[in-house]
Design a binder for these strands. Sequence first.
DNA 1: GCCAACGTTGGC
DNA 2: GCCAACGTTGGC
Length: 154
Amino acid sequence: MAHWLFKSEPEAFSIDDLRKKKKGEIWDGIRNYQARNYLLTAAVGDRVFFYHSNEKPPGIVGLAEITEVNVVDPTQFDAKSHYYDPKATKAKPRWTTVKVTFVEKFPNYISLDELRETFDGAELMVVRKGMRLSVTPVPDDVAAQLMEMAHEKR
DNA sequence: GCCAACGTTGGC
DNA sequence: GCCAACGTTGGC
C-alpha cells in the first residue's frame, strides 16, 4: 500500500466535500503530465493525505483512500468544463485519474510550517520550494510519522 | 529543437 | 494582491 499527497483548494473541493460523497469522487482536473504519471502508478487501497492549499495556513487535513484507478477524466471532453481539453478524444483520452473516498478528518491539522519543521524536501516533496505539483508520493516512513502527528494528543 | 512569451499555482 | 517558480505554447 502506497501513500500520496493530493492538493486541493478547499474553496473548490475540500475534505468536507469529499466526506459528503458516499460513493467517492473522481479526482478530476489534473492537467499536468507529471501528476498524471504518478496517478498511473497508484493502486486501489493506496492512502491519500488530503492537503488544503490556498488556505491560511495551508496543510494536511485528513485521509482518503483510492478506490478505483485508470479512471478517464470526463471533464476533458466537456466543452463547458474549465478542464476541457480539445486535444483529447474518447478514443485517445489524455487524462486519466483515480477515484477516492473519504477515510477521516484528522484531529490535528498539520500545517505546512509544521511539515517544514519535521521533513526536508527529499522526504516530503510538498515542502520543497516552488513545488506546485498537486500529486506527490509520500514514503512509508513519512506516512507513518504523519499519521502519528495527526493523532497525537497536543 | 530552441526559447521567449504567457499562463498558472500557491505561499506569503 | 503580489510575485517566484515553473510548465506549456508557438514562432522561428
